[in-house]
């Protein structure tokens, strides 16, 4: 067992090393991302600021509260960009037959796929998210108690798992349809809009769907509601933040199953 874990870790670490080396081969890419990413997400937080400033709190959420919600959501987005951006490429992997290589190695394909690339550029996202989050913590006088720190950590880990799993499940559609790259963009936009604004500005059925069908609301909305003491419209027993990591793990297992189901349909095109 321990031997096995050591084996998986050593393989994963070597993959990480290779992805780091690969990215340093393209410095222009890194530099432009360092400029672009803060700009893209700066627009999101600025929009909220100007709206509250020129109009009123949105759905009863003040700017510091909105920034807190935005920060939690964006942190898990950043980490997702680091660890599972390759979901984006499932389509091209399928079209170019890149899964052949993974299928030929005596390791779980899902494991290889998960560790095959670490997008270190995504750390820029994490950094931007962290800045917004810490800034909002100051604005709302967040109490840095051990309980709160553990809560935030679990919420973010759960959020990353939920996000990655949603992408894996939807992008695996490419195994059947040969297409899913544009689905990645669609999901990315959807996740952005639903994790950065309070769900309460949307109709009830949207929130219902995003709670029980695609559990996006657990990434940032419900945890933020609880920490900030806001009304989340739908009420659950137990602490809200307990659900995020649990749902994250369940989603991850589902994603693994769905991916493997798709792999059976893999046609190894391209040569």
């Amino acid at each position: 067992m321990l031997e096995n874990v050591k084996y998986y870790i050593s393989v994963a670490l070597y993959y990480f090393k290779l992805s780091l080396q690969k990215q340093f081969e393209y410095p222009a890419m890194i530099i432009s991302c360092v400029f672009m990413i803060p700009m893209m997400y700066g627009t999101g937080i600025l929009l909220l600021y100007f709206m509250v400033h020129n109009f009123q709190p949105l759905g009863g959420w003040s700017f510091p509260q909105l920034a807190f919600l935005f920060g939690i959501g964006y942190l898990s987005h950043g980490l997702m960009m680091v660890f599972s951006v390759q979901n984006w490429w499932i389509e091209s992997y399928v079209l170019r037959g890149e899964f052949d290589r993974m299928l030929l190695r005596p390791l779980s394909v899902f494991f290889q796929f998960t560790v095959t690339y670490i997008n270190f550029i995504g750390l820029v996202d994490v950094l931007v998210g962290l800045t917004i989050f810490l800034y909002s913590c100051k604005l709302i006088n967040f109490v840095w108690s051990l309980h709160n720190i553990i809560t935030i950590a679990f919420v973010i880990i759960g959020g990353v798992l939920i996000r990655s799993s949603i992408f894996t499940i939807f992008c695996s559609v490419a195994f059947w349809t040969k297409r899913s790259e544009s689905l990645f963009l669609l999901l990315n936009d959807m996740l952005e809009r639903t994790t950065q604004y309070p769900m309460t500005i949307y109709p009830y059925f949207v929130q219902f769907m995003l709670t029980f069908i695609v559990p996006i609301a657990f990434i940032s909305f419900y945890p933020a509601c609880e920490i900030l003491g806001k009304d989340g419209r739908i009420v659950f027993p137990l602490e809200m933040s307990v659900y995020t990591p649990i749902i994250g793990i369940v989603m991850f297992i589902l994603a693994n199953m769905f991916f493997n189901l798709g792999l059976k349909k893999y046609e190894s095109a391209g040569s």
Partner: peptide, 27 residues
């Protein structure tokens, strides 16, 4: 596939913006 997904993407973006502006303009 792209025709339908890009329609979906645009719909999500525009609907989210609409609800955002509606919340901002409330009253």
């Amino acid at each position: 596939f792209e025709v339908f997904t890009s329609l979906g993407t645009n719909l999500i973006v525009v609907l989210a913006n609409i609800y955002l502006w509606k919340a901002a303009y409330k009253g």
